[in-house]
């Protein structure tokens, strides 16, 4: 279901407007699967998980699948409810040039929270 993320982001007009000054390539790593995502003025215009194609990214958000599964619960447990909580406990890692992320924090936090609506129940659901 993660592949529907661009559509779900792009139909949220206030979210896209919030990211209107943002153009960046970033990577979302869910366990062993890397999603390379291109943001163009707040719209997600690229979303691939073809791996191994030597794509570049400015920053990467990475966590094991079981961590993302906990993070993406509709009401996450304490410690799994925020990307910075995960980073503090080293369950997730924020890597690379964090400037685009930090200067558009609300945008990215809202984008990565969208899968909480997917009702994931298993790690397999994440990459289905």
């Amino acid at each position: 279901m993660l592949h529907t993320l661009p559509e779900l982001v792009n139909q949220r007009t206030t979210l896209v407007r919030r990211g209107r000054f943002l153009c960046v390539d970033f990577r979302l790593s869910v366990g062993d699967v890397d999603y390379d995502i291109t943001v163009n003025h707040g719209r997600l215009v690229g979303f691939t998980s073809d791996g191994g194609l030597l794509r570049s990214w400015r920053f990467r958000i990475a966590a094991p699948a079981q961590t993302w599964l906990a993070f993406w619960q509709p009401v996450p447990a304490p410690g799994y409810h925020d990307i910075f909580a995960l980073n503090k406990s080293r369950l997730a890692r924020l890597e690379g040039d964090l400037y685009p992320f930090m200067s558009n924090l609300r945008y990215f936090k809202e984008v990565i929270a969208i899968p909480r609506d997917f009702n994931f129940t298993t790690e397999q659901d994440l990459v289905a």
């Binding site: 925020d82 990307i83 924090l105 936090k109």
Partner: peptide
């Protein structure tokens, strides 16, 4: 950035 950091 202050609000974004503490929002979680």
């Amino acid at each position: 950035v202050c609000a974004g950091l503490i929002s979680g």
